[in-house]
Amino acid sequence: MKQIVLIVILAAVAAAVPLFVGESPYFMGIMISVLMMAALSSAWNLLGGYAGQYSFGHAAYFGAGAYTTMILISLFNLNPILCIVAGMVVACIIALITGSIVFRLRGHYFALASIAVAEIVRLSVLNFEFTGGAQGILLSDVSLWGLDLNSKNPFYYGMLLVLVITLAITAQLRKSKTGFYLQAIREDQDAAASLGINLAFYKNKALLISAVLTSVLGSLYGVYIRFIDTSAVLDLKLSIEIILTAIIGGVGTLWGPVVGALLLVPLAEMLRSNYLGDVLVNAGLVSETSAFGLFLKENLAHAHVLVYGIITVLCILYLPKGILGLFRRVK
């Protein structure tokens, strides 16, 4: 109950943010990315953090939502809400097929198989004609209930809503039989089975909830950017980013993915836009023409993936339970 109140309060605070920064599309863009990554990572956390089933293929569900929505809008100009529902159905189907095959495997094999399924989805989309193949899908116009879909606000609130729903489901789950069962599966599958837990059923349940939430975010993303291709929504890189956000924030905690996204998304953006180099140069600490200045300007912006990787390694070495793990009661 306490957690639900906290979720509502923080959601209200987040909902007020656009009122103050409404004029800055750049900032809003970053905030939308933060909310989306927080929600994606929270949805992954239901399966990875609570049931302990590390999926490396969540891009498949994100892509399922994005592609289904974009195809239906561009071909039939369907109401985007219906398209989101259709995306959920497609994600369900992929999840059920994946789960029924892959959950027979344990441990590392599940992680590997989830990559394989995601790659199958990616390669299929790349080679079908109705999915736009390598060119992707571009949406020229989309409308819903007279909302201004050229503004970022509807997407900000959309992402926020999905994040709140995901967090509420997570908080509720932790207080339910299913939540106990998922954690039992994470801790020891044999013990769980011997205590009457149907492993495949509960793993599939977690995967299904996780996949459906992920697909909604994919749908929102597609309509928001209005252009998708396989490298944007079905790439292994996306799956890994989702996992890293959860790991750095704190796997198996309610707020870990949110903390991870608040930290990593702006950081990635700063590195990408060479914010650090600009600050140092502007402060007069580094000359723009010096070797170090040139290095910052020329290389650091391209090295954001490297920096990201270093942070991940440091986190794994020194904060194995994530940032929130630091605050967890040690019993």
């Binding site: 801790e187 044999d190 013990a191 011997s194 205590l195 009457g196 149907n198």
Partner: peptide, 22 residues
């Protein structure tokens, strides 16, 4: 195993299997 448990037969383990983080 879970179906057997629901019929009323349950086992323990020679090497104990606590759910360690719970």
């Amino acid at each position: 195993p879970d179906e057997v448990c629901h019929l009323g037969m349950v086992r323990t383990w020679q090497r104990v299997k606590p759910l360690g983080n719970l």
